[in-house]
Design a protein around this nucleic acid. Structure first.
Lengths: 228, 228
DNA sequence: TGTAACACGTGATCC
DNA sequence: TGGATCACGTGTTAC
């Protein structure tokens, strides 16, 4: 049976912290299996203790590295102790969150959630004059506009107006669309709506967009604009 | 709890964790000076150790309280270990900072620094048609607009245009001003400029504004607007 | 002098 | 088991 850390294998008088214990294997051994087990136990115990304390040191270092990164991000946080630093971080995050929340109340700022919605803006469903409101929110990337334009053209739609906002690598857009001059007179708005949803979803929510995550960071914020 | 601190005074068999030790003073003492020294030393040692470990516990609790506050602020940070949580906080802060920085590139968003600047917008300094551009940035508060309006009237100025942005309890404004119909024809623009700076500074940068810090939180963000 | 902050090694606990 | 995380009490240093 293998030894363990259990104290039942050790006499009460044995102090594992005393160096003499390490020398036990050198002296004649009347109970070889137990003695050898003692030696192995001691070695394994030391090794375990060392790896434990090393792992704990690595953990502390990881935490402290993040703390010092945070310290660089928060102005005037030099000389603060850990708790005060974290307190400042809490305030900072709350403040920044509040500001971005205020802004998104007024501006059409993108969220972190990919989505596409299509609605009718008026009742007459089977009419060329019908307006569709198409919204999307997704990661931004350079090709997005040309892909959208092509898709809209292919569906024989015309952009009557648009409100686009890009922020932090995300983009949100609202398009006002209606059938264009190439569109059939008897176009079925319901199926057009479905097609539009499919096409927009493919462009905006396709998993391949994640490839552009880094690239999209260079997109800048811009105010609501018209796109046609 | 170890007794190494005073091991030279204590026999190996003495366990400081046993209550009997605390009762030593009650029993007959054959070596009074040594016993008393032991007692005092031991008591002081225990008290010091206790207060040390209690202080350390308070410190840990302070840090952990901030960490759990942060955990509430960061979505999906449940179940993260401390280092991962702090990593998420770093990302979050960077992200929010980037977003607000992007926005302030385009919008005239207020900074954390109080300031007032006055400039001429054209060369003709001694003319009623001269435009002054007055900017300020300070804590927002309800009375600010009426105070500004009164000051501008008192200086016999007229607001030709303004761009005001309020965000996170701070407000930044840029005013286009020119002498109004009540102004003297030979008004000295240089002294007008000085007076305007003094008055605006009193309104915007006066230390009393700090009283309104809380109140000003209810001010909301609004887009650049015209104020006259 | 004691108070505060930090790093350290260890025991406990959880997969 | 072994690896990882956490709370704890302690030694150390600075003011």
């Amino acid at each position: 049976m293998e030894n363990s850390f259990c104290s039942e294998y050790w006499p009460e008088t044995c102090d594992v912290n005393q160096d003499s214990v390490y020398l036990l294997p050198q002296v004649p051994c009347y109970f070889p299996q137990i003695q050898c087990s003692h030696e192995s136990f001691q070695e394994r115990r030391e090794s375990a203790s060392r790896s434990h304390s090393e792992a704990e040191k690595r953990r502390r270092d990881r935490i402290n590295a993040q703390l010092s990164t945070l310290r660089k991000l928060i102005p005037t946080s030099e000389k603060m102790d850990k708790a005060a630093l974290l307190g400042s971080v809490v305030d900072h995050v709350k403040d920044l969150k509040g500001k971005t929340a205020e802004i998104s109340k007024v501006l059409n700022t993108p969220t972190d959630i990919d989505e596409v919605t299509i609605e009718h803006l008026n009742e007459e469903e089977e009419n060329k004059g019908c307006l569709l409101k198409a919204s999307f929110c997704c990661d931004d990337r350079p090709e997005l506009f040309s892909e959208l334009q092509r898709a809209i053209n292919n569906l024989k739609l015309r952009v009557m107006g648009a409100d686009i906002t890009s922020l932090g690598g995300r983009i949100k857009g609202v398009f006002m669309l209606c059938p264009n001059e190439n569109s059939a007179n008897d176009v079925c708005m319901s199926s057009l709506k479905r097609s539009l949803r499919v096409v927009l979803s493919r462009i905006a929510i396709s998993p391949s967009t994640s490839n552009y995550r880094i690239k999209s960071k260079r997109q800048r914020f811009f105010l609501p604009a018209h796109f046609s």
